[in-house]
Design a protein around this nucleic acid. Structure first.
Lengths: 238, 238
DNA sequence: CGTTGAATTGAGTGTTATCAATGCAGGTGG
DNA sequence: CCACCTGCATTGATAACACTCAATTCAACG
């Protein structure tokens, strides 16, 4: 977000930005609140949630390192979701007035903001096309592909089944059954303390069954991502 | 979008904007194209589509009057969807350079753009929470509520069953069965040439069954909307 | 060792997908 | 005008799938 700033500007920004750490299931902000800040994930995993009338929740999208949430606050809207940390998560809290002044001072910064809006939109589309389309097995497969895509070793955090269900639009039991089946078939291996190590080829096959989007649009694997993440937040996985 | 401009500026803008009319099923732009313009719907209905591997399509969201699509082009991205007119549709084609120069000249115009991005994001969330959650009947009910929400008379266009299925993540047959059942139960009445007249109370009941989002977020009814739309584009409905 | 919360599994039911047939327009050409 | 086609909506029968409810297992923790 701040990639285009000069060193001096960066220093100014740094002083008013809070670095926060949230424990699993802690809320970062609540749906309906009037927001005075937006947030970027530095490390960890965040779910954006909308509550359903029966007390359940629907996860609208996930946010990982570098993703920005609460961006709607910048156009004066109340937060549209509740943001909840799914593991120990380090978050940057950026007050609105910082963004405000940057947009005023640096004309190109507005474009940075638009890029972030587009990122959120891409993620929202993914939620529809990949996570809410086709049979449960294909959805789970696409989720594992997504979660493991930044890892060179194809590892990913082991989300709890309830969250998987809420994200994929299926029940907890269905999510559990599919994951158990995948484990039995060695589509992934559970490495305790390290998350799941996925057979991406197998997952791609499963993901392609019925109603598959043409070409899943995932980040290229980021080398070294495992090395950085694992030791710092081992409790982040599993 | 141009609400904050002065009269003179508006005149400048008007000269470089194209007014286009698309027939049903005509594509406005294609997924993957590098875009040199964005579009606003003046009248009609547009679907944003992502192709699936089996030749089917998934409708990501709908765009109605005043909605803006192809906004991703402004940050240099290729169009993320194919935009297709669902009825006779009048569209405004705004070249990127117009937006470009407005953002440079009028600092507050960037904020207008961000508002539009947020509108798209809200619609994307709706696709997930309302249209891709819960049993088929509830999804269809929420769609009819959405389509009829701008009409004081609670009328809405009669989408073809294939499109309903592609938008709701169900098959054409299921969409047809649900609609036929609704018709038999007088949940709506088909007024040929005018679309469907919906019993919104009944729809709200059905929409609330299982997995319902807390509070559907629809526009308030716009008085006079029917009067304006119906005579101009009678072929738009039915 | 008992408690707790989550994951897993089972049995039964309900919904939806699939495949296939039928009905119902609006058009075209004889 | 009618036969014919075509595209779409509708309907039926069946199988696959996912949901519900309930029981069981498992791991973590005090």
């Amino acid at each position: 977000l701040f990639g285009t700033l000069h060193a001096a500007e960066l220093e100014d920004v740094r002083t008013v930005i809070d670095d926060l750490v949230f424990q699993p299931n802690e809320a970062i902000y609540l749906e309906g609140e009037t927001g005075h800040a937006l947030f970027t994930v530095r490390r960890g995993l965040v779910k954006l949630v909308r509550d359903l009338s029966d007390g359940e929740e629907r996860i609208v999208r996930l946010q990982r390192t570098a993703d920005i949430s609460g961006i709607e606050a910048f156009v004066g809207a109340a937060y549209k979701h509740t943001a909840v940390a799914m593991c120990v998560t380090e978050v940057c809290r950026i007050p609105l007035r910082v963004i405000e002044s940057l947009v005023n001072k640096r004309p190109d910064f507005a474009r940075q903001m638009m890029l972030r809006w587009q990122d959120n939109l891409d993620d929202a589309d993914r939620g529809l096309v990949e996570f809410s389309t086709g049979p449960a097995e294909a959805r789970v497969a696409r989720l594992l592909l997504h979660l493991s895509c930044r890892s060179a070793a194809a590892t990913c955090p082991d989300m709890c089944r309830k969250d998987m269900g809420a994200l994929l639009g299926v029940t907890t039991e269905t999510a559990s059954r599919v994951m158990a089946k995948f484990k039995r078939g060695s589509v992934f291996v559970d490495i305790p303390g390290c998350g799941l190590c996925c057979d991406r080829k197998a997952l791609e096959d499963i993901a392609a069954r019925h109603w598959c989007p043409t070409g899943l649009r995932h980040d290229p694997a980021v080398l070294g991502c495992d090395a950085v993440l694992t030791p710092v937040f081992p409790h982040c996985f599993g």
